[in-house]
Simulated scan of single mutants.
Amino acid sequence: MIIDMPSTTTSKVNAKIVELRQTGGAVALGRVLTLVIVTDDGEKTEEAVEAANEASREHPCRVIVVARGARKAAPRLDAQIRVGGDAGASEVVVLRLYGELADHGDTCVIPLLLPDSPVVAWWPSESPQVPAEDPIGTLAHRRITDAATDKNPIKALEHRRGSYSDGDSDLAWTRLTSWRAYLAAALDLPPYEKITAATVTGEADSPSTDLLAAWLATYLKIPVRRAKGTAPGINAVTLQRRSGAVELVRPDGKVGTLEQPGQPSRRVALSRRSVTDCLVEELRRLDPDEVYEATLKGLDKITRGRAATPAKTPKPATRRPAKAK
């Protein structure tokens, strides 16, 4: 069910939610948090709502979408309430803000927050320079950004590093979970040798590639080279050790191949994660992510260079026939 409320107020929206709850016969609601999505009004809004609806099936919540419209328009609040099949396992409130109201979404969000429950803020596209100081960010226990959607993803990571506060997270980091798990599992197999160096290859503007390189440099305390690849996202990771290299390669963005000395080559599921999968994982924890914080601080430990190219096989020397005397 979708109910449109043009030119309305937050008090009327709240009253309508209560009315729907009473007429629908719901006595108790098992909402565990409030998810506030901040975005500009447009196609991205519906994509974010769809991802939130899917995530709500594991984390029942109230979803409040702050969709900022034209700043030059007259101040106006258009609301839309979605319940039932149009809201997954949640209730969705879409607030479209126009004029001066577009820059004051926090005043519209506060009356709609679930009482005594945590608040998570998510910027699916462009995010504030300092999420913790953003008016909506100050309301949240957890603040989720996505450096990959910024105009300059690598520069966005540097901003995250300088502005980090407990509760900050980024989907560029969440996309690394499978890579980190496979690499950690590979090092749990014999031979148990120290890793001496590493190379992480990925797309030039892939923030996840930078974060993976920084994670290895921080926790293995080794020199890590960040190389440019040709395929989207992360392409490969090579860990050097005395008996031979551990290599995890993903050329097609779907299936990876893990190779290491003394072990058979293995194909592993390593497809690029969807926004929904990443959002579901992020909502599983509300405490500070200390590993993410340490990884951000380790971004200055990586070095940059070209991807290694296979050595050319030298051509056999040929002797010219001797001239007849």
Rank of each mutant, 00 (worst) to 15 (best):
L113V: 12
N235W: 01
S274W: 04
A324Q: 09
D86N: 12
V66C: 11
L33Y: 04
G137C: 11
V109N: 05
V119A: 00
V291G: 02
S11L: 14
P124H: 01
A51W: 04
S127M: 07
E259C: 07
L29Q: 12
T230W: 03
A156L: 03
P60V: 01
G30D: 15
E281Y: 03
M1Y: 09
S127D: 11
K312N: 09
A217C: 10
I3V: 14
R31A: 06
V237G: 04
M1N: 11
V65K: 06
C61E: 12
R57P: 03
R225M: 13
I234S: 00
R143E: 08
A87H: 07
S265F: 01
A172E: 03
E126T: 12
G84C: 09
A87S: 15
G305I: 13
L112K: 09
L112I: 10
T318C: 06
G137W: 02
R82E: 13
P261E: 07
S208V: 03
G42I: 02
V237D: 05
A70D: 15
K194M: 11
A236N: 01
A322S: 09
A227I: 00
G298R: 09
V65L: 10
Y98G: 00
V63H: 02
V109F: 05
E193L: 10
P128L: 06
R241Y: 08
L286T: 06
P6A: 12
D41L: 14
L211T: 04
T196E: 13
E290Q: 15
L77W: 01
V38T: 14
A132C: 10
K194S: 13
D150Y: 10
L189H: 11
D205R: 12
C61G: 04
S243L: 10
K16E: 09
Y292H: 07
A67H: 03
L211H: 01
E100N: 06
A198F: 06
W179V: 08
G24M: 11
P232K: 13
V200K: 05
A308N: 08
R284L: 10
A204L: 09
W215H: 13
R161E: 06
H104P: 02
P190L: 11
K323H: 13
H141G: 15
T177V: 12
K221Q: 14
R96T: 15
A227E: 04
G85A: 13
A15Q: 15
L212N: 03
